[in-house]
Design a protein around this nucleic acid. Structure first.
Length: 273
DNA sequence: TGCCAGGATGATG
DNA sequence: CATCATCATGGC
C-alpha cells in the first residue's frame, strides 16, 4: 500500500484485503454511519473522521498526519498482512468459504472502555437497538465536538451517575452493569490499560470482576478493545458453526488468530439465514 | 401479535 | 455441574 498526503486529505492506494463498509458494519463497532454517497463518518479516540472507499482508494478526510499514524492506521489494523493471514485460513475449506464470501473484514482496534461498554450493552440485544442505546449514551454523557458529533463518555463520567440518570438511554436491565463497569474502571479496580499485555487468561479473569460481564463480553473486549487476536468470543452463530463444522476445535491453520477467524465465521454464518 | 436479539445472573434440579 | 426463567426494549 501507498500513502499520499494532501492538504486536508490522506489517501491510501493499492490497499488489499480491506472493505470499509464490511469492516465498519459487521457487528464489532456500533457508532459508524454511512451517508448517501457511501462516505462513512464516526468518532474514535475522541476524534471525528470521514472516510470514503472507492476505486481501490481509501480517503481520510480531516485527519492530521499525527492522528493518521497514531489513531487510524492501528484502528483499522492496516499494518497487519491480511493477505497472508487469509491465505493461511483458506487451507481449511469452511474458513475459505467464509473468507471468500466476505473478503476485506478487519478487526478494529477500538478503545478498551468503549468496547467493554458496547458489548455489555449488546447482551441479549439486537444490533439496531444496540446502536440506538450507544448513540443516546454518547449524546447524553459524551463531549460535543465542533462537528456536532459526540465522543464516547469516559468511565469517570459514567461512574458519577445513578441508574435513574442513566435511564434516558433506555439500556434496560443493562444500566446497572454499565455503572458497575464504569465504577470499577474509574477507580482502577479493573485496569483496562493492562489488558493488552497481560496473559490472556488473567486478562479475562480481570474483566469477569464486573457484574454483567461473562465470557462472551470479556472476550469481545479483549479482541476489539485490546488487540488480542487470540481472544475468541462465541455467540449463538459461532457456536453453531463450531458444532456443525469444528466439533473438535478450530483447524490448525487458524493458529493464534482465533479472533480474526471468528469474525469471518460470525459474519458468514449470520448472513446465511 | 409473538418472537428474537453478538448474554449474564440467580435459583433450582 | 446443567438447565431455566428472567431481565427491558424495539424491530420485524
Amino acid at each position: 500500500m501507498e500513502t499520499i498526503f494532501y492538504q486536508n486529505l490522506i489517501k491510501i492506494k493499492n490497499l488489499i484485503c480491506f472493505d470499509l463498509a464490511l469492516t465498519l458494519d459487521c457487528g464489532q463497532a456500533f457508532r459508524w454511519k454511512e451517508d448517501e454517497n457511501g462516505c462513512w463518518s464516526g468518532v474514535a479516540f475522541g476524534k471525528f473522521i470521514r472516510i470514503l472507499q472507492k476505486d481501490d482508494e481509501l480517503c481520510f478526510f480531516g485527519a492530521t498526519r499525527e492522528d493518521f499514524y497514531g489513531i487510524w492506521l492501528p484502528y483499522f489494523d492496516l499494518e497487519r498482512d491480511y493477505e497472508r493471514l487469509c491465505e493461511g485460513f483458506c487451507e481449511d475449506i469452511s474458513m475459505k468459504e467464509a473468507v471468500t464470501s466476505y473478503p476485506g473484514i478487519r478487526i478494529l482496534h477500538q478503545e478498551p472502555w468503549e468496547a467493554l461498554c458496547s458489548f455489555i450493552i449488546s447482551q441479549n440485544n439486537n444490533i439496531p437497538r444496540i446502536k440506538g442505546i450507544i448513540e443516546r449514551l454518547c449524546q447524553s454523557f459524551g463531549e460535543k465536538l465542533p462537528c456536532g458529533e459526540y465522543t464516547f463518555p469516559t468511565a469517570q463520567r459514567l461512574s458519577e451517575l445513578s441508574v435513574e440518570e442513566l435511564a434516558t438511554i433506555r439500556a434496560g436491565f443493562r444500566a446497572k452493569y454499565i455503572l458497575d463497569a464504569a465504577k470499577k474502571t474509574a477507580c482502577g479496580e479493573v485496569k483496562l490499560d493492562l489488558l493488552s499485555s497481560m496473559p490472556i487468561e488473567q486478562a479475562r479473569q480481570e474483566l469477569l470482576k464486573i457484574k454483567g460481564v461473562g465470557n462472551k463480553v470479556a472476550e469481545c473486549t479483549l479482541l476489539y478493545g485490546c488487540g488480542r487476536m487470540e481472544a475468541f468470543p462465541e455467540d449463538v452463530w459461532v457456536k453453531r458453526v463450531m458444532a456443525e463444522l469444528y466439533p473438535q476445535g478450530l483447524p490448525a491453520c487458524v493458529g493464534e488468530n482465533r479472533g480474526i477467524a471468528q469474525q469471518y465465521l460470525f459474519h458468514w454464518r449470520r448472513n446465511k439465514n
